[in-house]
Simulated scan of single mutants.
Amino acid sequence: MAMAGLRTIIILSFILAIGFLLVILSSALYKNFLPLLVVATYVLAPIPNWICGRWSTSDDFMDSGSGGGGVVELGRFFTGFLVVMGVALPVVLAHCDLIRIEAMVMSIIGGLLIYGTIISFGLFFHQEEEF
């Protein structure tokens, strides 16, 4: 079982490296740093979900039944906003002729690989707390 976990970590790390390589190449090949902004949005995207998830954890003794759904939904909204911004930002930059279409495609694919890997790492290491 430990070997399967190690294999998963190695595969996810390889995919993350490919995502970063695509985003860096989209900047380096066309001598424009603007596609690197996508990395910031995809790295920051899971943070609102994580913060709001921690905020809304309920105590077993003081459970009111609501579970903090409003806070969790707010975190999902901000996460969704950042993910959509990570895709839309290169499209807008390419539309304004600030970056090339090839850089836009490489930046979007690389950004989605980065975000997908971050989410996969989170799901892989997520543990249910049982008492």
Rank of each mutant, 00 (worst) to 15 (best):
M1S: 11
M1K: 13
A4D: 14
A4P: 00
G5C: 03
L6A: 07
I9N: 10
I10L: 13
I10T: 02
I10P: 00
L12S: 03
L12R: 13
S13R: 00
S13N: 00
I15S: 04
I15M: 03
L16D: 00
L16E: 01
L16G: 02
I18G: 03
G19R: 07
F20S: 02
L22W: 04
V23A: 04
V23E: 05
I24R: 03
S26F: 06
S26V: 05
S27D: 00
S27H: 03
L29T: 01
K31H: 05
K31W: 08
N32M: 04
N32H: 04
L34G: 01
P35S: 03
P35M: 05
P35V: 11
L37M: 10
V38R: 08
V38A: 02
A40V: 15
A40K: 03
T41K: 06
Y42R: 03
Y42Q: 11
Y42L: 13
Y42H: 10
V43K: 06
A45Y: 10
P48I: 04
P48R: 08
P48W: 07
N49P: 00
W50L: 10
C52E: 07
C52Q: 10
G53C: 01
R54T: 12
S56E: 13
T57W: 09
T57D: 14
S58E: 15
S58C: 11
D60V: 12
F61T: 04
M62R: 09
D63S: 15
S64L: 07
G65Y: 07
G65T: 06
G65F: 12
S66G: 06
G68P: 11
V72T: 11
V72M: 14
E73P: 06
L74C: 10
L74K: 08
G75D: 02
F77P: 11
F77R: 05
F77H: 12
F77Y: 10
F78T: 12
F81K: 07
F81Q: 14
L82I: 14
V83G: 06
V84A: 14
M85N: 05
G86C: 13
G86D: 09
V87M: 14
L89F: 11
L89I: 15
V92K: 01
L93H: 07
A94F: 01
A94L: 14
H95R: 11
H95N: 09
L98E: 08
L98F: 13
I99D: 00
I99S: 05
E102Q: 15
E102D: 15
A103N: 09
M104Y: 00
I109D: 08
G111C: 12
G111V: 07
L113D: 02
I114S: 01
Y115R: 02
Y115V: 11
G116A: 12
I119M: 12
I119P: 03
G122I: 04
G122Q: 09
G122L: 04
L123F: 12
F125W: 00
H126R: 09
H126K: 10
H126E: 07
E129A: 02
E130D: 08
E130F: 01
E130W: 02
F131D: 14
